[in-house]
Write a protein that binds this DNA or RNA. Structure first.
Length: 444
RNA sequence: GCAGCAGUAGCUCAGUUGGUUAGAGCACUAGUUUGUGGAACUAGGGGUCGGUGGUUCGAAUCCACCCUGCUGUACCA
């Protein structure tokens, strides 16, 4: 609260960037530790690639060739364009192409890392966020695709979600490709617009999607979106085909068979999921939550999926020499954190220090002795880090949610028995120093 | 990007037919209690009313433009 206001630097953060506080980070750590456990169990290798890549290496093969330069943060360095990675799959393809001869195939790797996207942020959706990504590179086996889904389900359940909290939706790019062939839709632009429209079924329903397949649609705010201009007969065929609730593509049938072997049934065939437009070549997955997610005003919002993936058999071969069919899946960690924190039953224990009150600097030796005992017992503690009145120190302990304070002033030192105050009950006890650890353990 | 709505204290908000010095609750600071937090009471600090320009004797209030946020929509690897 300074008076001088002119020419001060801004305290605001760039659009879509956020400070993340302990409460949130602990949930994220919890998720990450579950991920690592599962990944080790499934035999995946841990990899890290840099935040920046040459734009060519990750940009040239952007799935959406419509706007190849949009959506990423880039800058020019010595005449070469660099971009912050926008996902972990493109760098993986680059890594595999670079190290192809040395790595064992199929290459199973997982990665955790921050990615950046230059697009409009939404609730639980930022321009900088953390992704988890696991892939099989160098195999066409659908066992890999199936296993990825089973594995993600295991991770989610380890994170305390129940089967009714999430569902993995599956489809295949082959279904829409067949459909386009059948309907004689060859124009690439038309295909894209059609796929984009179909991608919105969960949000807009068939009514909205049919408008987008036809002339176009006006949204709530009155804004108008142009449609794919398909004729009504074509639209009806599409609707009829996609409303079938069992898959008619061989790859999906096989994957579902493998699911049975794993006794995994928390999935659903949904031909309306689309994902990356020019990227996937076969099966596609999407991980959706089935409970309501609210914004900070308590309003239920359109949350979308927390992850997804699919088979991309051409991504590595784009680099030239090697043909490496691949399949992968990723989870947006921060979105999962955002959703998880809203589940009432979900609680993460935060360890807060026991505060040792300072009555007089001259007693510091005694305080350090007590603190050493606590540290040996692995109990989080701190000697109040300033000179202050007792009341201030108590207020501090209360505010940081400390479980207890240790009072060791002149009176206590005389008797050699500190007072332990439980801050949630207010109860105070005079205790022998050697009993201190046991008493504190009862409280925390 | 497009569209709608909104921006007043750290937070949530009140305050417009334009009129002295802009308010409340919570939070913060100090005290009532010089060895005791979460309750109460008392006092206090904190705002160029998102920004710039305009209309006016006079603007938080009216107008224009800009910025930021929310929501929808587009795009979404």
């Amino acid at each position: 609260m300074t008076k001088e206001k002119k020419n001060k630097p801004s305290k605001d953060l760039p659009l879509g960037f956020v400070d993340r506080q302990e409460k949130e980070l602990l949930v994220r750590d919890f998720i990450i530790s579950n991920i690592k456990e599962v990944m080790i169990k499934y035999g995946f290798q841990y990899l890290e690639t840099p935040s920046f890549e040459y734009s060519d290496s990750i940009g040239k093969f952007l799935p959406d060739k419509d706007r190849p330069d949009e959506g990423v943060f880039s800058f020019k360095d010595e005449n070469k364009w660099l971009s912050l990675r926008y996902d972990l799959t493109a760098p993986l393809a680059r890594y595999v192409a670079k190290n192809y001869l040395e790595i064992a195939k199929p290459f199973k790797r997982y990665q955790l890392g921050t990615v950046w996207r230059n697009e409009k942020p939404g609730p639980g959706r930022f321009r900088e966020f953390m992704q988890f990504d696991a892939d099989f590179v160098g195999t066409k086996s659908l066992q890999a695709d199936a296993e990825l889904c089973v594995m993600v389900a295991e991770i989610l359940e380890k994170c305390s979600l129940s089967k009714s909290d999430y569902i993995i939706k599956i489809s295949s790019r082959k279904i829409t490709e067949e459909l386009f062939k059948k309907l004689n839709i060859n124009d690439n632009q038309k295909k894209l617009t059609t796929l984009r429209a179909l991608d919105k079924i969960d949000r807009l329903g068939w009514e909205g999607v049919k408008q987008l397949l036809g002339k176009g649609r006006k949204d709530k705010s009155g804004d108008f979106t142009k449609g794919a201009n398909l004729n009504s007969q074509t639209i009806e065929t599409i609707e009829k085909e996609l409303k079938k609730n069992s898959p008619e593509s061989d790859d999906l049938k096989e994957i579902i068979d493998i699911f049975k072997n794993y006794k995994f049934n928390n999935f659903e065939f949904d031909p309306s999921i689309i994902r990356g437009l020019e990227y996937y070549t076969g099966a596609i997955f999407e991980v959706n939550l089935r409970f309501d997610v609210k914004n900070n005003k308590g309003k239920v919002i359109q949350f979308g999926s927390i992850g997804g993936g699919g088979r991309y058999d051409n991504l590595v071969s784009n680099f030239g020499n090697y043909d490496a069919p691949a399949t992968g899946i990723s989870i947006g960690l921060d979105r999962l954190v955002y959703a998880l924190m809203q589940k009432k039953e979900f609680k993460i224990k935060q360890t807060k220090p026991v505060v040792i009150i300072v009555f007089d600097k001259n007693f510091m030796k005694e305080y350090i002795n007590i603190q050493s005992l606590l540290r040996e017992a692995n109990i989080s503690s701190e000697i109040y880090p300033a000179e202050s009145k007792l009341k201030k120190q108590m207020e501090y302990a209360n505010k940081i949610n400390s479980p207890a304070v240790i009072l060791y002033g002149e009176d206590e030192i005389k008797s050699g028995k500190p007072t332990l105050r439980n801050l949630s009950t207010g109860e105070e006890k005079s205790i022998e120093i050697k009993e201190l650890i046991n008493e504190i353990k009862k409280i925390i």
